[in-house]
Nucleic acid binder design. Structure first.
Length: 594
RNA sequence: GCCAAUGUGGCUCAGGGGUAGAGCAAUUCACUCGUAAUGAAUAGGUCGUGGGUCCGAUUCCCACCAUUGGCUCCA
């Protein structure tokens, strides 16, 4: 594919950059179509994106909904048919600003002001449309062959909440129609994996307006998975020397003033409540509670590290627009722990946390993740605890540990917690934006605020360092992730129903009941389908609706031979077994969580 | 919170100014059945909530609530 560079040269595009040039050019063509249909529209940014492109546009008082898209798309097709040539020219800064002002493109004019003094300011033109841009672009509009406008949304100018919200028109573009079709198919499949859809059909959790928004409730089947996850992670933690505690879901406002959370996050906490002139909040996190548990008694350096863990209920007043099923609610349960360590122990403890994270990921087959070292933005004097020396020390300590461990990570500025840097492990859900699953944060700040101490070898009082960490993140979010990864086909040990007993007819119902009862007594989660239906129907519903790992089919043959027939979800094969043999095999597998 | 869209029986969805429809699920009856849907019948909804326009609203308008897709935020 030929492309037009901003110095006017036409070059052959490297294969790997083709798609981005195509998508970026699609944004320009969309802008041209919009300008033809809405002459009063003014443009902000219009970049290529992951799967396509978008353009942020100020339509003035005109409301643009999704019903406006077909006409714009039609106009784009017309433009590609017109096969307009892309042309490029450069203007001196002042002329460029004037040109943009003249055309009412105030956002573009403002953008020129943000560019470095020596920046070349170039314009790409196709037909009647001119856009300030660094390019490169396709040479003729006909090169754009497969695209589609997908949805509209709002987006703040320059991504800043204080600025005006523009209308963002989103589209996808690919090299060919086949690629576009494949993408659309993929979107459909992702929707089918959405944890909210599966959670509803599998009766894992629910929400209700009368309970309140962002407050999902786990139903018996969902809570079964929850409890298994809780047992699983606590077992791992106990082996690593964690001690589990139970602390209340409220705390005094003073507790959060001490920690500094009150100053930073008051607006995202449920409002303060006053009882008998004492002020409380629903707790948004557990660090302060665990700090006070540490402070409950004096500590020697010999006691450290002390690892306090809790499956802890938290409440955060998340903005309504950010709520998403059990992935992000206003109540959630963190798989939280705070490790109180000496400075010398930092490396070993971070290392142990990182090992635990990847050990857990291995157990769940999680391979698609991204590690981020989240650092402070030194220019942000509001968000971050002010202590340059502390930050430099903490950040380089964490970076060094991660590097020594051979973890590959990217660094992101301004993503740290207010009290310290962190390692975040991020994953991509079926639908929507990436989020953090696991985190490990290095904190030199809160222990000092709470005046935590230990007596060192030389008899002097020292301040411990704290590692905040969450492996499953919140159980809620982890479950959301698991649902989407497994499509609801949970491994045996997590399956809400592990065995479904299916009598062929009423003649074998009594025996089936006995088998069912026996399985349950052996600690296996079994259900009996005693509906008056054909066996084929029962198998279909156990497979399709509930994705049950094992079906035990009981007919007159099994009754007379005192056996059971076991159908495996993986293979769809049915084999004869004895009840005792099946029970022990199953118990072993469940115990080993394989 | 902001921008936009959506809201019809338990679930998935159709319809549309003259007080509602399908499939699945449920219930009942018949069948007693061998590995991905037996048949028939019945029941179930003041069409998110509250206002307004109209002879008449679930359908049009407004407000609110919830949900969804984005933006901002995420200790």
């Amino acid at each position: 594919m030929k492309i037009l560079m901003n110095d006017g040269h036409v070059a052959e595009c490297p294969q790997e950059e083709e798609i981005e040039v195509l998508r970026h050019s699609a944004a320009h063509i969309m802008a041209q179509a919009v300008k033809r249909l809405y002459p009063g529209a003014h443009f902000g940014y219009g970049p290529a994106t992951d799967k396509g492109f978008h353009y942020d546009i100020d339509f003035g008082d005109v409301v643009i909904g999704e019903d406006a898209l077909p006409a714009i798309e039609q106009e784009m097709k017309k433009i590609t048919k017109e096969n307009l040539q892309f042309k490029v020219y450069e203007l001196p800064r002042e002329e460029a600003v004037n040109l943009m002002r003249e055309r009412g493109e105030t956002y573009k004019a403002e953008h020129i002001g943000d560019l470095p003094d020596d920046a070349r300011i170039t314009f790409f033109r196709q037909g009647d449309y001119i856009d300030m841009c660094v390019g490169p672009h396709i040479t003729y509009t006909k090169a754009l062959k497969a695209f589609k406008l997908t949805f509209v949304s709002g987006a703040y100018w320059k991504n800043d909440q204080k600025n005006k919200m523009l209308t963002r028109i989103n589209g996808v573009a690919f090299r060919s129609q086949e690629e576009l079709d494949a993408y659309e198919q993929q979107v459909q499949e992702a929707k089918a994996r959405d944890h909210r859809r599966i959670g509803k059909t599998m009766k894992l959790f629910m929400t209700d307006d009368l309970i309140g928004k962002g407050l999902p409730m786990f139903l018996p089947k969902g809570y079964t998975i929850w409890q298994e996850l809780e047992n699983y992670i606590k077992e791992k933690e106990r082996l690593l020397g964690y001690q589990h505690v139970l602390t209340p879901c409220v705390g005094t406002v003073d507790l959060y003033k001490t920690s500094g959370h009150w100053d930073h996050y008051r607006d995202n906490m449920f409002p303060m409540m006053e009882v008998e002139s004492e002020q409380f909040v629903l707790r948004p996190m557990n660090c302060p509670h665990h700090m006070m548990i540490y402070a409950n008694q004096p500590h020697s350096y010999r006691d450290l590290p002390i690892r306090i863990g809790e499956i802890a209920h938290d409440f955060r007043f998340e903005p309504s627009g950010t709520l998403k099923g059990i992935e992000r609610g206003r109540h959630f349960c963190q798989n939280d722990a705070h490790l109180f360590v000496t400075p010398e122990q930092i490396k070993a403890e971070v290392s142990s946390v990182v090992d635990l994270i990847f050990d857990v990921y291995k157990d769940f087959g999680i391979t698609d993740y991204r590690c981020v070292l989240s650092l402070r933005d030194p220019d942000d004097k509001v968000k971050y605890h002010q202590d340059d020396a502390m930050w430099e020390h903490a950040e380089s300590a964490l970076r060094e540990v991660l590097t020594d461990l051979g973890i590959s990570f990217t660094e992101e500025i301004g993503e740290a917690a207010f009290y310290g840097p962190k390692l975040d492990v991020n994953v991509q859900p079926a639908v929507g934006a990436e989020y953090t699953l696991s985190t490990c944060q290095l904190d030199f700040c809160l222990p000092a605020k709470f005046q935590l101490t230990y007596i060192d070898r030389d008899g002097s009082e020292k301040t411990p360092v704290v590692l905040h960490r969450a492996i499953l993140g919140s159980l809620d979010r982890f479950m959301a992730y698991l649902i989407e990864e497994t499509k609801g086909v949970f491994p045996l040990w997590l399956s809400p129903v592990q065995v479904k007993v299916l009598p062929v007819s009423e003649k074998s119902l009594d025996y089936a009941r006995k088998v069912w009862d026996d399985l349950r007594r052996a600690g296996i989660r079994a259900e009996l389908d005693d509906r008056d239906e054909k066996i084929g129907y029962k198998i279909r519903s156990a497979r399709q609706d509930e994705k049950v790992p094992y079906m035990v089919i009981i007919g007159e043959k099994e009754v007379s031979e005192n056996t059971i027939s076991v159908r495996d979800r993986e293979t769809d094969l049915t084999v004869a077994d004895t009840l005792e043999g099946f029970k022990s095999k199953l118990a072993d597998r469940i115990k080993s969580r394989k």
